[in-house]
Amino acid sequence: MANIEPTTLFFAAIFTNNILLTNFLGLCPFLSISKNVESAFGLGTAVVFVMACTTGLNHLLYYKILVPYDLVHFEYILFIIVIAAFVQLVEMIVERFFPPLYYVLGIFLPLITVNCAILGASLFMVIRDYTLVQSVIYGAGSGIGWLLAITAVGAIREKVQKANVVPKGLEGPGITLIITGILSLAFIAFSGMIQIQ
């Protein structure tokens, strides 16, 4: 695993190993926020940023602190605290220095702490023994993959909403799951090109 090309890893994380469509991570915010493209894109952007930074940060802390002191069982607690603290910090910085950006991303940031995709990326990075550079690239790629998926589904849902053809019981989460399934099929078509495990 250690010698996987950074560009390969990046594209694999976006397309063939899309964290949402093949690993089912980050489904809850995905189902509830994907009603329209605008908010889907806002949340997606915040996820890309937080995911790239926290995987790097978690990588450093995991290998510099937990491994030398033999505390690997506490990885979950460490990761979740790092993610929560990082999100809080970003929220404060953005609010203080970039108010316009805060209006776009502000409401989405607190949601991210409990987004399973963020924690999932950190856990995958440990299991697959990525180096620091690979971890950051994997985090960024997964984030972009998530952004791509949620934006696409947001756009499709807007159209479906207008068409008004969905049976009553299937409205909301039901139809979203089916759209996601079809999208997932489309992404699986890429899987012959690159494989990472």
Binding site: G169, L170, G174, L177, I178, I188
Partner: peptide, 20 residues
Amino acid sequence: IMPPGAFFTLALYVWLARTY
């Protein structure tokens, strides 16, 4: 057994449960 299967199956359950 591939990911889409899970999405479709769950969607069917949600649909059935919500309709009936």
